[in-house]
């Protein structure tokens, strides 16, 4: 096993004293975190601890109000999700960010549509349907038709759609905000396998989860958030679920 050493070398992404205020509310304050290639970091914490807000800053969805971000050592500013995508960061949001009025295929390709004719930019529907099918089968989650509208899908199928979109994009850092919340047992298994596969491809993964078993199975390190602060980072191998839970609840061991 090599991931004990993954915190060495140059981090892919480094957050320095990152903070976010919503008016008077300090949702995230002074978070320092480095994410190395090929590691899986779990983020845990109570509801309202600031986990989603933190990852949204990495995803370019919200701009930080303080601190700085570095990608491979270079300072960057993400003023919208496009910037983060350009830096090879892909995100699955807690609410999945799907267009329910569109088909599974449309959502998988949203923002990356295949087109021909540079002027008219005509959609290559057939090609996108075929590629979507391949991606979905690969993920092992059953969606009968890529033509189906997302509004008619189950929670697990929606999750799969969002995952397929990220899998397609081929990012260096993949962020997942509570991805297993809507999943059944079989679907969760497939998700965990997928995350491990991403890691074996050298990608970094940041995953927010409440499921201690999952967190301990797949992560290399665990970051604990409390009231907007990152209060501890533990190596998964050197901690226990009890220790993490007590950190989440009491803020100490």
């Amino acid at each position: 096993m090599q991931h004990a050493e993954t915190t060495q070398g140059r981090p892919f992404l480094e957050a320095r004293n990152i903070g976010k205020r919503y008016g008077g509310l300090h949702a995230v304050r002074d978070v320092n975190l480095s994410i190395y290639p090929g590691e899986v970091i779990g983020i845990v914490g109570d509801n309202g601890a600031g986990k989603s807000t933190f990852i949204k800053m990495l995803a370019g969805d919200h701009e930080p109000t303080s601190g700085e971000l570095l990608i491979e050592g270079r300072p960057v500013r993400f003023s919208n999700p496009r910037d983060a995508k350009q830096a090879q960061i892909e995100t699955i949001y807690q609410d999945l960010a799907l267009c329910e009025n569109l088909s599974v295929m449309d959502n998988i390709f949203l923002g990356h549509e295949l087109t021909r004719n540079p002027v008219l930019r005509l959609l290559q529907r057939n090609k996108m349907h075929i590629e979507s099918r391949v991606l979905l089968d690969d993920l092992g989650i059953g969606i009968p038709s890529t033509h189906e509208l997302v509004v008619n899908l189950s929670g697990g199928q929606r999750q799969a759609t969002a995952l397929a979109r990220v899998a397609k994009a081929g990012a260096k850092l993949i962020i997942l905000d509570e991805p297993s919340a809507a999943l059944g047992v079989r679907e969760t298994r497939a998700l965990l396998d997928l995350i491990l596969r991403f890691r074996s491809q050298g990608k970094s993964i940041l995953v927010i989860s409440h499921e201690m078993r999952d967190v301990f199975e797949i992560t290399d390190r665990i970051a604990i958030f409390k009231r907007g602060e990152l209060i501890a980072i533990k190596r998964t191998k050197e901690t226990t679920p009890d220790e993490i839970v007590s950190l989440i609840i009491r803020g100490r061991q």
Binding site: A97, L98, C99, N101, L102, G111, H112, L120, L123, R165
Partner: peptide, 24 residues
């Protein structure tokens, strides 16, 4: 048939999702 047309529906469906998907 066009990408613009697809984005018209997508933006109407959920503008925030489009933004997060990198659409301007």
């Amino acid at each position: 048939f066009t990408l613009f047309g697809k984005y018209v529906y997508a933006v109407g469906g959920k503008a925030s999702a489009c933004r997060r998907a990198g659409i301007n």
